[in-house]
Design a binder for these strands. Structure first.
Lengths: 186, 186
DNA sequence: TTGCAAGGCTAATATAGTTAGCCTTCACGG
DNA sequence: CCGTGAAGGCTAACTATATTAGCCTTGCAA
């Protein structure tokens, strides 16, 4: 291996992720990323194919971290407690990474990124199955994830502008949902 | 008024909206919009401040239409039927306008656009109140909207990749939610 | 009839992403 | 020890796009 590398793909991804959160998606330039890791913009192309590729790598990184956070949250053994812990961890992660969370879940996002989160789907699905019964596990899981994702997205977008307590709305929704998915006639 | 205008703000907004849906957000250039309305790109600036402003106008247009669609759906007088009709209309609208719907609800979107939908919030809130009771109307409405928005967003993003019937998941979620928001102890 | 402003246009500028092509550094085989 | 080749920098150049500057024509209104 020749001349000392002055940076690495990992450093580029980390810088891109940080800048993305700090300045938003439109303000993220190859030049800024290059500055952050101490090289010139064209040198980035030795590591990433292009700007889209950098986005993909950043979002995969975010997805991996989210997977870890979710898996780490489900430890109590009690399904309701685990579901509460996982949804809270999910929301906490989104609040801590608002820009990249939103990008990761956005439509035109890279398929690769969202695919990563399939890994934690299995854990989640198992826990939901204990509440909703095996027949309704998949739709029940989708109901909870859709609600959580929608709530968080709207919250981050500032869409809850009719006043009221947003925390209370979260607790209300989660409480009602956890009851609602319980199998009444399985 | 001097020389015959060759276009109008409305035509520009309509062309922008159409191109946005057809080609996606990254492919929408001022040049393409100008071509679509029969002028040169710089002439657009006589009507819109800049590209962001064009986006704002397009998303406001979408929001206005969505408001109309939702209001038109709530006509039966029965709260459950109205809620089913409104959520179905909401989902149908999103499916018909996937790109602009997503943009409209996205975080960094223009505050103006989402603000328009506040108008239809009132109708929706009233109907939810008949189910959930006045005390829980706001959190209950937020629960349903969050679920619907999250479900649709994930659906459009292709995030439901574990197989299963997506229609069934929608029906399951909506059915359980409509029951769940009913006031058990108001 | 003359003035003036709306609303076109071309030309020019700035910013990004990206490519081309070169140069230096060292690990390694002879 | 020495030559070499590829990794990994860099500068310069190219392209696309938004946007601004400044001009020209048109036709209503005084």
């Amino acid at each position: 291996m020749p001349a000392h590398p002055q940076t690495s793909t990992a450093a580029i991804v980390a810088a891109g992720r940080r800048l993305l959160e700090e300045r938003g998606v439109d303000a993220l330039t190859m030049r800024d990323v290059a500055d952050a890791v101490g090289v010139r913009a064209p040198s980035l192309y030795k590591r990433v194919r292009n700007r889209s590729d950098l986005f993909r790598l950043v979002l995969e990184d975010v997805a991996d971290e989210l997977t870890g956070v979710l898996d780490a949250a489900a430890i109590s053994g009690d399904p309701v407690a685990d579901l509460r812990a996982m949804t809270a961890a999910y929301r906490g992660f989104a609040h801590a990474n608002p820009v990249t969370y939103t990008l990761m879940m956005a439509p035109q996002a890279v398929p690769g990124a969202t695919a990563r989160s399939v890994r934690s789907s299995a854990t989640f699905l198992n826990i939901v199955a204990q509440q909703a019964g095996p027949r309704h596990a998949l739709p029940a899981a989708r109901t909870i994830v859709a609600w959580a994702h929608g709530f968080i997205t709207m919250e981050l977008a500032g869409a809850f502008r009719l006043g009221g307590d947003v925390e209370q709305a979260w607790d209300f929704g989660l409480g009602r949902l956890l009851t609602a998915i319980r199998s009444p006639a399985d």
